[in-house]
């Protein structure tokens, strides 16, 4: 058996080593090097790239990424919880359809989904066109290329990540608990606040982490919906590797981002175990 297993694992192990671990190792190496004259990397070894992360110029972008990701995550949870509750309480045969409707847009191209919001929000977009033709406004509202547009895009993009863990948490919950709480004289809102929500805490944590991580690393959404003004960590990294041609600094930001992601995941795994995800 061991030989067959080794044979089965060999291709994935090779891909993982060569195309995931080795590239990561290169990035780690680059992050301690100095930017070359024509881009590229040279010696000497330095930790200066990491020190620059605290430069206010970049700090403001990192801070913005954290704030926008937190906001998007909070909104996702706020929207996802009632929706998950609705699906969990629906008739058995309808549950699948309701879930399907949550996942369906997810199967469509991310680019297309982001473009759909550009189509709605831009100056000549649908919302402005309608408002203008109804004479509600005289000139287009600046709906696109700002932080609000980015947060809307992030919520739109990652909402299913919040709905699914919350739904499975609610689904596992003993339905009698809800009824019991109501029987004891609790109103339905109190039932939700005092019984359902506390029991949903693991689902909330999983959903929160699952939304926060991709938000933090988002690239396309801030790029397309934020324009050049509301860029996030992902755009900063891309910028260092293309326009700025400062690979060592780009590598250092990437690793800082990875570290944040891993800390969050490990914290979740330690708290709730592997079933959390």
């Amino acid at each position: 058996m061991n030989r067959l297993r080794a044979l089965f694992l060999a291709p994935s192990a090779a891909f993982t080593v060569v195309l995931f671990l080795a590239p990561m190792a290169i990035i780690v190496g680059y992050s301690f090097m100095t930017r070359g004259v024509y881009g590229g990397v040279t010696g000497p070894w330095t930790v200066e790239n990491y020190q620059r992360l605290f430069d206010p110029l970049y700090g403001v972008i990192l801070w913005r990424s954290l704030v926008m990701s937190t906001l998007a995550t909070a909104l996702c949870l706020l929207i996802a919880f009632p929706l998950a509750l609705f699906i969990a309480r629906a008739e058995e045969k309808r549950k699948n359809i309701y879930l399907y409707l949550v996942i369906l847009p997810f199967w469509t191209s991310f680019l297309v989904r982001t473009y759909a919001w550009m189509f709605l929000l831009r100056d000549s977009g649908l919302i402005n066109s309608v408002l203008l033709s109804l004479h509600v406004i005289q000139k287009p509202l600046p709906l696109l290329y700002n932080e609000t547009a980015v947060v809307v895009g992030l919520v739109y993009g990652y909402l299913p990540f919040a709905v699914l863990p919350l739904y499975s948490n609610l689904e596992r919950m003993d339905k009698n608990l809800l009824e019991a709480a109501a029987d004891l004289g609790a109103t339905q809102w109190e039932t939700i606040r005092r019984v359902v929500l506390p029991l949903c805490a693991p689902g909330m944590r999983a959903a929160g982490v699952l939304v926060f991580i991709p938000c933090l690393g988002a690239y396309l959404t801030p790029d397309l919906l934020g324009g050049g003004k509301s860029i996030m960590i992902g755009n900063l990294i891309q910028n260092q590797f293309t326009t700025a041609r400062d690979w060592p600094f780009g590598a250092a930001i990437s690793l800082a981002l990875m570290a944040l992601v891993m800390v969050l995941l490990l914290a979740l795994l330690r708290r709730d175990g592997e079933e959390a995800l």
Binding site: G217, Y219, W247, A251, V261
Partner: peptide, 22 residues
């Protein structure tokens, strides 16, 4: 192996992209 693969799943795309480019 499973740890690396699951980590690759949560690695932001931009990081995966630039590391592969490197």
């Amino acid at each position: 192996l499973s740890g690396s693969l699951y980590l690759s799943l949560v690695t932001p795309e931009i990081v995966t992209g630039i590391s592969l480019l490197a």
